[in-house]
Design a protein around this nucleic acid. Structure first.
Lengths: 152, 152
DNA sequence: CACAATTAAGTTGTGCACAACTAAATGCCG
DNA sequence: CGGCATTTAGTTGTGCACAACTTAATTGTG
């Protein structure tokens, strides 16, 4: 394979992933519009619904997002009345993110989201599972490589 | 399957894609750092290297990006000395993006990028091809669904 | 116990994505 | 030909991602 062909191929691969990510985002934008949530905000709410109130730190670990992204995002959720932020009494550095009644109630309306997303993909559950497995493997490899490259 | 389980599953799927996209971005950030390019800027340069000078409009069609994203991005490429922007004489609405000598020369240094990315994925070419096929199919389905949902 | 290192959250600055809008040039139709 | 719709860029505003930095609280160690 000649080098120019490598560049062509690379364009196709990186472009495919970029496009898929943006397309997914677009569908979530439409589906979540009804709930007044963005896609990353929905991810935060999913974690809170599943695991209950959590400090910002724990949220960041779950979603692999740092405080630079989470702090303003959580503030917007608070402005929307879905969560409250409370300094932990035990450790004043930590801020606990708590669902409000309204935030907890939103879960009911969110229950229809997954099915709408699934049907938008046009994939059956098995295929989705396989894709997910592949993406997770890819992510792990890429994260490892980024660390190695960075310290090269 | 109970409804809470659907929410759990959804979190896993959307999260996997989001994570993969960001992980890819991270590797490109490291690899492209040497060239002084971001990932979307690299995509623009790939199109220009492959297809020669293009108006902003055509670039946007290729990359599915609108002028709100492309205008400032191309300006940054111009500030970096990689491209020039020229109003078309034939149609004064159109702006032609032209590679400078420096921009064209950068292609040489970019030739190593695809191999570094490939090796970072830990996937062989066949597996990458398969993943790409699946992602493209997913993107097509999602785009179609977003249009249907939007007009529902 | 005092103080240096660590940790949690937040802030600042850059860049991308996208919606909504503006401005200017072109095309088309009566 | 004149005026209106369309097309092409660009602008504005919001939100996310991330790097680099700041601040305040806590931990660990001499």
């Amino acid at each position: 394979m000649t080098e120019p062909e490598w560049l062509r191929l690379d364009r196709q691969i990186c472009f495919s992933l970029h496009a898929a990510s943006r397309a997914f985002n677009g569908v979530y934008r439409v589906v979540l519009g009804d709930l007044g949530l963005t896609y990353p905000q929905y991810l935060v709410m999913l974690v809170l619904w599943e695991q209950g109130d959590l400090p910002v730190k724990k949220l960041g670990e779950q979603l692999r997002l740092d405080s630079g992204t989470l702090s303003p995002l959580v503030k917007r959720l608070e402005a929307a009345g879905l969560v409250r932020r409370e300094r932990s009494a035990a450790d004043e550095r930590s801020v606990l993110v708590r669902l409000t009644g309204e935030g907890a109630a939103l879960r009911e309306r969110a229950l229809e989201v997954p099915r709408r997303i699934m049907s938008a993909t046009g994939f059956d559950p098995a295929e989705i599972g396989e894709l997910r497995e592949r993406l997770d493997r890819l992510t792990a490899a890429l994260d490892a490589a980024a660390r190695t490259e960075a310290t090269r």
